[in-house]
């Protein structure tokens, strides 16, 4: 029983960590976007305002996948262990 609960907790933590690998994608994407924006501002300094606002919009959209991963990681850490342990205890009681 304790071993099973330990495995559940450990696997939830591992899953949360693995889910956050998705943070690589938005990192690279946003880095590219900001680099291009810097180039554009360097070429045309007068268009700084519109470039910056467009870049922020693009960054926010690129960030979405990372945020999905974050939500899943938070669910795995704070919500999933309780639910899974409840299910485990209920099935063990049913078997008895």
């Amino acid at each position: 029983m304790e071993l099973a609960i330990g495995i559940i907790l450990g696997c939830c933590a591992l899953g949360a960590g693995l889910a956050m690998i998705a943070g690589i994608g938005p990192g690279i994407g946003e880095g590219n976007a900001v680099a291009k924006a810097c180039e554009a501002i360097g070429r045309q300094p007068e268009s700084k305002g519109s470039v910056t606002s467009t870049m922020l919009m693009g960054c926010a959209i690129a960030e979405t996948t990372g945020l999905y991963a974050l939500v899943i990681a938070i669910l795995l850490i704070f919500v999933a262990p309780g639910l899974l342990v409840d299910i485990l205890v209920n099935t063990m009681n049913g078997l008895k």
């Binding site: 960030e63 979405t64 945020l67 999905y68 974050l70 939500v71 938070i74």
Partner: peptide, 10 residues
């Protein structure tokens, strides 16, 4: 919804 909520929650 997830974009806004995830950013503030993080």
């Amino acid at each position: 919804a997830f974009r806004h909520y995830g950013n503030v929650l993080s």
